[in-house]
Design a protein around this nucleic acid. Sequence first.
DNA 1: CGAAACACGTTAGGCGGCTAACGATCAGGT
DNA 2: ACCTGATCGTTAGCCGCCTAACGTGTTTCG
Lengths: 147, 147
Amino acid sequence: MREWEISEWADDFQPVFWAAKRALTQAAEAAFAGHGVREGQQFVLLCLWREDGLPPGEIARRLGLATPTVTRTTSRMEAAGLVARRPHPTDARLVLIHLTERGWALRETLNAEARKLSERALHGLDADERREFVRMLDVLRRNLAEG
Amino acid sequence: MREWEISEWADDFQPVFWAAKRALTQAAEAAFAGHGVREGQQFVLLCLWREDGLPPGEIARRLGLATPTVTRTTSRMEAAGLVARRPHPTDARLVLIHLTERGWALRETLNAEARKLSERALHGLDADERREFVRMLDVLRRNLAEG
DNA sequence: CGAAACACGTTAGGCGGCTAACGATCAGGT
DNA sequence: ACCTGATCGTTAGCCGCCTAACGTGTTTCG
């Protein structure tokens, strides 16, 4: 039996990764939804907790996202009362995204929620395995990063 | 991008996974787009190559997706000439998704494309590491699977 | 000093994922 | 035979992600 007859793909890496990705996305959505934060917004918050008052393009650059993604995400977050838009004092092209009190207030809560989620996701893997796992994920990202 | 020295979360597992997931999604999109197949549709094709003529609900069950996702995806694939809808001979509730000639013809091409993508993604990891990686991804999925 | 080149955010539109609600069909119990 | 309850596919609408096109403001250079 030749190898390509055993499984369709050379290995089952892609289906397994795909399934894991959807599982984590859904679990994260469930974990954050109760606090009015949608999956994906947590990384924007993470970014702003580290440095508040960034323009959308800079957030996109730091998170590796396209700028329109950040524009629309922050619009929704603004509607949800998490952030506020303010004009840049000297450069009228720029818009600065600022955390609201509510955005700051969620910091500890969401960090705890994220820790719980990671713990649940990685349950059964010891510290070495977790390190290896994160390392391999990063290898993957670097391998696929263009430019 | 290299901006990830996250100290906010207990570990940086989630951001790294998130970045890897987007990288793989985009790379897969790029790999399949030239053949008129969009990211996500490859798994429906994989499913039908194994067993043609399945109803949407069954495809959803096998792939772990919600039924409406499959309904819409197969609609787009129908418009793209990859599959065709046919009524079930005895049960009028069911719709059977059949591969077209074009859907069958892409089998080897897309498998080759997928192998290339996996090879590129996992470059630098030996066979043992790849097995471990896939195993840990599956642990993750099982840990997060509800029910 | 003015026009071209550049930088920035937004809008428009597409795909992939989801849940909720709807309509149609089949199967079971009375 | 009929009404009830499952089962199935589709529609509608939300969010996350993307690219392309647009409009406005800034910078640069002739």
